[in-house]
Every structure is written in structure tokens, then in C-alpha cells.
Design a protein around this nucleic acid. Structure first.
Length: 533
RNA sequence: GGUCCGAUAGCUCAGUCGGUAGAGCAAAUGGCUUUUAACCAUUGGGUCCCUGGUUCGAGUCCAGGUCGGAUCACCA
């Protein structure tokens, strides 16, 4: 086995060497340069994160008042000392603060900013002191000389913890005047460009941590920072969960490793269980498991987790993607569309604060969802095309899909391509099924669930025949699912929602890889030709 | 998988007709020490993605490959 050397992973450069030297010098001053903890103050009432402190009302008030005063001053004129003194008295009354974070600016001079990844807080250090240096055992000594020495050994990107009092600067920024300095960890590599962040998409995705650092240090932004994209993603997902919980749905987890890959039309990943000596497949959909639970009496059930499909990668496809799937007993396809609209409205509102989002120049309005039959949609966008049951889906894909910008439910799918869906009572060739399209992307797929075990069996058999005929994505017969249905599944509607795509829409990201923290990529390879085996 | 585009310093990017490898930020050294992306001066830093070819000479031209991006196909 070839184990790479540390230096092969952390390739020495002038930057790493300089930082190594600075780390050694700091170790001489403080002992172990990797302390185990830093306890933050609770001036804000809770843990004083930088974000909490930055948005703390008394601090915001001082900054706002200073901004007003400064607006009345001429360029370069300093605010009156009495006013500043009064403010500083208010700030000092808040007590001693202890905050920690990453240095966002090189330490040339007395001022630096610390960030917690979201907000920045300014920190001031004066070599005239009083300044204490905290040693690794937590003890500290008043020692301006060593304290200032340590301060100057700090590098852009290091983590420090500081203790001190709050004051306002001439430019009106509330800052911490450092009285005690504790070194927390050294950043051994240089930080990203502060104006541009990480522009290289490959670097951004392979080293998301570096991208996140870069976006937190970056001075100016167009659109959301990487951090904000994933916070918005979390809010959207929390909103989805909240809405379902509030409406009586229960969250479950069904197998990711399954003996049969079925419940959707897709190619699976295959793996092997050694102890049982059986092949298993990463699930392509949780659908059939969730409906087994409806049989068992879970009337409202949902699962929000990953599906895996062994197919191409594109701006809207990642091999593993997050799907929200849920089922509701006694509901049909129309009830499900209504519920889906409300669910999306609530969640989008929670994530973005509104119902309208701008996506690649289009304004998408989640307030209105249209419902159009597939036949009418094709007739509208390809009026001169003669369509029948055999070519309508192809015609739809080719001529209609990319035109559906505003939220649109396409309804009345051919039954032949909907093997788990009930037929429309008015037309046996049509399925009670919809797909939701937004900005030309399929975002959701739902239907009235077929619950007649005999008919479901026959639909599976049709699929198996197509499979034999070479359609690798035709569904696999699941015998236990037929058995489950034979115990009786109440009428029910179900839906699958592509969460990543919904996140793309609310974050204005063109690529699914920008809304997945660690998207799938080919393994990195060294540029040399020496690798073999 | 097809087509098009790209890869140069830690990061962001220039590099003209094929003729000694460049800038800004970051880093080092010295100065400054209430500053708001970039204070001043000086210095160091390169497998120009890899392999091969053409040429007196290749970052630059050619071929093959690697990785990435866009797009098409398939899928959600």
C-alpha cells in the first residue's frame, strides 16, 4: 500500500513555509498552539457569536447614531469627543466580551476583523496595552511585549479569541479593544482573493470549505454568497418539513440499500453485501416502501432524503439528489396539486421572504400555478404537429417543456408511461397524474396511487416485457409490494419533489452543483505521469 | 457519450507575430499604528495540466490524453 507523505498533501510553498515559521514562533510564546477551547462571553444573552454581537441591539443603536452624526460632518471631520465618550460609556457598561473567529484581514496595523463565517466584527489591539497573552493552559500574564509579538505573528486566516471592552471608532464602527489575546489555530495556507473569492468552479466544488472561507472573506458580492445559498437551502427544507408536520405528516426513513431498484424509471447503482452474499441497489425512489406504510396505516407519511440514479450528469442532474416524497390517504391527484401549491408557497416564502423569485432574468411567481393538459400544452406550443398517444410525450419534451417558465402542472399523462398511477375514471388511457414544471425543469411528479393489486401486477408485467425488450429503465416487478397492496391500501395521492431543483430556483443558481455542498466529481489526479496500478 | 470552450504564482487574471515568465491581492523584511478591499518602500515566489511532435527556439503551433465548464442526448 502506498501511503502519501504529508508533504505530498500539503505541498510546501513560500506561503506554507512562512506560516510554519510563524506557528513555531507562536508556539514558543504560548506553548501548545492548538488549545482545546475558548469560552465566549454572553453579553448578548446567549453565546456571543460574532453574528449575535454584530446584531445586538445596543451595538446596532450606537452604530446607527454614529452614522447619523457622521452624515452631518464634512469629509475627514471627526465626531465630537463628548458624544463618542458618552457612547463608549454605554458600550463599556455592556461588560467584557469574549469573541472568537477567523482573521479576515492581514494583521498590518492595529485593526483586524474576525468572522464567524457570516458576520465580521472589528478588533483593535494596541501595543501600549494593557495587553495580556493567554497561554495554552488558560493562564495569562500582563505582557505587552509578548502580546504584541504574538499579534504581529498572526496571519490572514488564523483563528484567535479575544477578550476586551467595546468602543466605537472615529469611523463609527463598534469594535473590541483587546485586553487578552488567545491564539486558537494557524491557517497553514493562504486565503482566497478577497475581491473575487474562488472563481474556479472546479476548485469551488472540490474544496467547498475553501469556497466557503472565500465567500466569507470576500468584500463585495453579486447575488448570494455560498454560505447564503446553503443557509437558504436549509431554510427551504425546514419550511417543507414544518408545513408537512403542521399538516399531520410523519417523517420516516426507508431503505437506501434495496434488493430491487424500482419505484421509478431509472438505472441504479449496484453494490454487494458480503455477509448475506446478495447484490443490493442504491434506491432510485422510496415510493414503494412509503406506500407499504400507507397500507400499514400511516395515513400521511413523508421521506426527505437522497435517491441515487446511475445516469448522466448535467446542470440539473447529480447522481445523488434530494427528493421529498409524501403520501396522503383518501386524497386524489387534484387534492395533491392543491396541497403542493400551498406547500411550495409556504416554503418559498420562508426561504426568501416572498413569493416571487428572479431566476436568470425571469420573474417566477409562486402565487399562481397553472394547470394544463398535456394535449393542450402540445397544441399550444406545436400547433401544426399531428399527435397521438404514441408520440405525445416526445412532442411534449421537445416543444413544450422548455417553455414552461411559470409554475405549471401538466396533467393527463398517458397511462402507458405511468405504471404506478391510477387511470382517470373518465378516460382509461389517461393517468391521474401531473408533473410540475418551473423554468423548463421538472420539479415534481405526483398521481393518484394505483391500489388494485391485480392491475398493479399487470402494469408491472407490462414493464417487465418492455425491460426484456431492452428498456433498461422499465420498472422491476416487486412481488412483496403486490402482496402489500393485497391487504388493502386506501385511496391515496403521492408526490415526489426534486428539492435540489427547487433550491436552484430560490437561489438563482443555474447549476445543481452550486446548490449541493459536495457534488459528484471525478477523482482528482496528480498531473504527473508516475502513477500506475 | 457527441459538440464547443478552458487550465499560467497560494488566489484573481494578463501574456501581441514562436524569441529571457507578468500584474493585483496574498507572503517576507523594514517603516507607520483609530484603520474601513487595496498605507509606504524593498524582496522572494512558476512542472505555464500531462505526454509526445514541429522548430535553432514552444506558455504560444500540431497530435493524443487528464480534469473542468457550457450545451445536446437520457433522466428528476
Amino acid at each position: 500500500m502506498q501511503i502519501p507523505q504529508f508533504e505530498e498533501i500539503i505541498t510546501p510553498t513560500d506561503q506554507t513555509e512562512a506560516r510554519k515559521a510563524s506557528l513555531e514562533a507562536i508556539s514558543e510564546l504560548v506553548g501548545n498552539a492548538y488549545p482545546n477551547k475558548f469560552v465566549r462571553s454572553t453579553v448578548t444573552g446567549t453565546d456571543d457569536t460574532i453574528t449575535a454581537l454584530k446584531s445586538f441591539a445596543p451595538i446596532v443603536a450606537v452604530e446607527n447614531e454614529m452614522a447619523e452624526i457622521k452624515a452631518g460632518l464634512s469629509e475627514g471631520e471627526r465626531p465630537p469627543t463628548e458624544i463618542k465618550d458618552a457612547m463608549n460609556e454605554r458600550l463599556r457598561a455592556l461588560g467584557t466580551v469574549r469573541i472568537a473567529g477567523r482573521l479576515t484581514t492581514p494583521t498590518r496595523g492595529n485593526f483586524v476583523h474576525l468572522t464567524d463565517g457570516i458576520s465580521k466584527f472589528q478588533v483593535y489591539c494596541n501595543k501600549k496595552g494593557p495587553l495580556a497573552l493567554v497561554l495554552n493552559d488558560g493562564s495569562d500574564t500582563l505582557d505587552e511585549e509578548n502580546g504584541w509579538k504574538a499579534w504581529q505573528l498572526l496571519d490572514h486566516g488564523d483563528f484567535i479569541g479575544v477578550e476586551g471592552y467595546l468602543f466605537v471608532t472615529n469611523t463609527g464602527e463598534v469594535s473590541v479593544h483587546v485586553e487578552k489575546l488567545q491564539f486558537l489555530v494557524k491557517a497553514m495556507r493562504s486565503m482566497p482573493d478577497k475581491m473575487h473569492g474562488i472563481a474556479d468552479a472546479e476548485l469551488r466544488q472540490r474544496q467547498r470549505y475553501y469556497d466557503l472561507i472565500g465567500s466569507s472573506l470576500q468584500v463585495e458580492h453579486d447575488g448570494l454568497t455560498t454560505r447564503e445559498v446553503f443557509e437558504r437551502r436549509a431554510k427551504l427544507i425546514a419550511g417543507l418539513r414544518r408545513y408537512l408536520e403542521d399538516h399531520g405528516y410523519i417523517e420516516v426513513e426507508t431503505p437506501m440499500l434495496t434488493p430491487k431498484a424500482t419505484g421509478a424509471a431509472a438505472k441504479p447503482f449496484k453494490t454487494h453485501h458480503n455477509a448475506l452474499d446478495i447484490d443490493l441497489y442504491a434506491r432510485i425512489a422510496p415510493e414503494l416502501y412509503l406506500k407499504r406504510l400507507v397500507v400499514g396505516g400511516f395515513e400521511k407519511v413523508y421521506e426527505l432524503n437522497r435517491n441515487f440514479r446511475n445516469e448522466g450528469i448535467s446542470y440539473k442532474h447529480n447522481p445523488e439528489f434530494t427528493m421529498l416524497e409524501f403520501y396522503c390517504a383518501y386524497m386524489d391527484v387534484n387534492g395533491m396539486m392543491n396541497f403542493c401549491e400551498e406547500l411550495m408557497r409556504e416554503s418559498v416564502q420562508k426561504a426568501t421572504g416572498g413569493l416571487k423569485v428572479t431566476y436568470e432574468g425571469n420573474e417566477i411567481d409562486f402565487a399562481r400555478f397553472e394547470r394544463v393538459t398535456m394535449k393542450d400544452a402540445v397544441a399550444k406550443y406545436a400547433p401544426n404537429l399531428a399527435v397521438d398517444d404514441t408520440n405525445i410525450v416526445a412532442a411534449f419534451d421537445e416543444h413544450v417543456e422548455q417553455n414552461l417558465i411559470q409554475p405549471t402542472f401538466i396533467i393527463d399523462y398517458p397511462k402507458s408511461i405511468s405504471p404506478l398511477s391510477k387511470a382517470d375514471p373518465r378516460d382509461p388511457q389517461v393517468a391521474e397524474r401531473f408533473e410540475l414544471f418551473i423554468n423548463g425543469m421538472e420539479v415534481a411528479n405526483g398521481f393518484s396511487e394505483l391500489n388494485d393489486p391485480k392491475e398493479q401486477y399487470e402494469r408491472f408485467v407490462d414493464q417487465m416485457v418492455q425491460r426484456e425488450g431492452g428498456d433498461e429503465e422499465a420498472m422491476v416487478l416487486d412481488e412483496d409490494y403486490i402482496r402489500a397492496l393485497s391487504y388493502g391500501m386506501p385511496p391515496a395521492a403521492g408526490i415526489g419533489i426534486g428539492v435540489d431543483r427547487l433550491v436552484m430556483l430560490v437561489t438563482n443558481k443555474h447549476s445543481i452543483r452550486d446548490v449541493i455542498l459536495f457534488p459528484h466529481m471525478r477523482p482528482e489526479r496528480k498531473g504527473t505521469s508516475e502513477e500506475d496500478n
